[in-house]
Design a protein around this nucleic acid. Structure first.
Lengths: 129, 129
DNA sequence: GCCGTACTACGATGAGTATCGTACGACCGT
DNA sequence: ACGGTCGTACGATACTCATCGTAGTACGGC
């Protein structure tokens, strides 16, 4: 049987429209500050970003993060992060790899990500969180 | 007739509970990152904060800001900013004066406010907003 | 005492969102 | 081909929120 969405069959110009396993991301120039701040204003998502930042450029599967929510909810949060431009996601086989878009964020909003990460760490220090 | 909430009658220990014209603010140590980011993630509120930052410590009445929303909505946004700890508000007669809590924010989250403001300016440059 | 100004309180509304459970799809082993 | 793992889709739910309009309160000035 032929698969409807062959991931490695070399089809030309594969996009989300033709293949749902290719995930849509905003281009760097389309990333906006407000959605980024909104994405970071949720405790679960902030934690994901912090964990990812600690791994400096590494790729993490969604299930790598031990989150206090179900898988459906987790999917939701990762989508918010991706659509706002904070992270990049791509499928590798059955797992989805996540990376921080640090280069894009730093280029657009210099110092912002670091300030947020530092603030988050400081708050954890301060309040135990 | 006696006023129920005399603002300048020197009553001792006047709080929000006794006088609604005394506005409640979070103490510096109670300010949390997530609500601050959430407060800043709205376009109208971000604009208020930017305008206020330009005035370096000055006090602005609510009506000073020409916002694209009604007065009720404006009240709502100022309250979100105050309750998250981003601004300080106090009554002076019939008007309400607003100031950025820059000292508190800088102490808790060094570089964050500046990064957000810079990012907002850059985005306006970039997209015309 | 009366009026105008500044802001609030309250209720409504429509949109968004954080959460879950269940059912399903894609992929990799074997 | 089969089963397991990883993640999605969809529907439901309850909550939050941005917005408005109307009615009202506090204060300053006349």
């Amino acid at each position: 049987m032929e698969l409807p969405f062959p991931q490695s069959r070399g089809a030309a110009a594969v996009t989300t429209a033709t293949n749902p396993r290719i995930l849509e991301h905003p281009e760097r120039e389309d990333i906006r500050l407000e959605p980024v701040l909104h994405a970071l204003s949720d405790a679960v998502r902030l934690r994901i970003v912090r964990d990812m930042a600690r791994g400096e450029g590494a790729e993490f599967s969604c299930s790598h993060f031990a989150l206090p929510v179900t898988k459906s909810t987790s999917t939701h949060h990762f989508r918010v992060l991706r659509e706002s431009g904070v992270i990049r996601q791509l499928y590798r086989g059955t797992t989805k790899l996540n990376t921080l878009r640090r280069d894009d964020l730093d280029a657009l909003f210099p110092g912002l990500l670091d300030a947020v990460l530092t603030a988050a760490e400081a708050q954890t220090e301060r309040l135990g969180d």
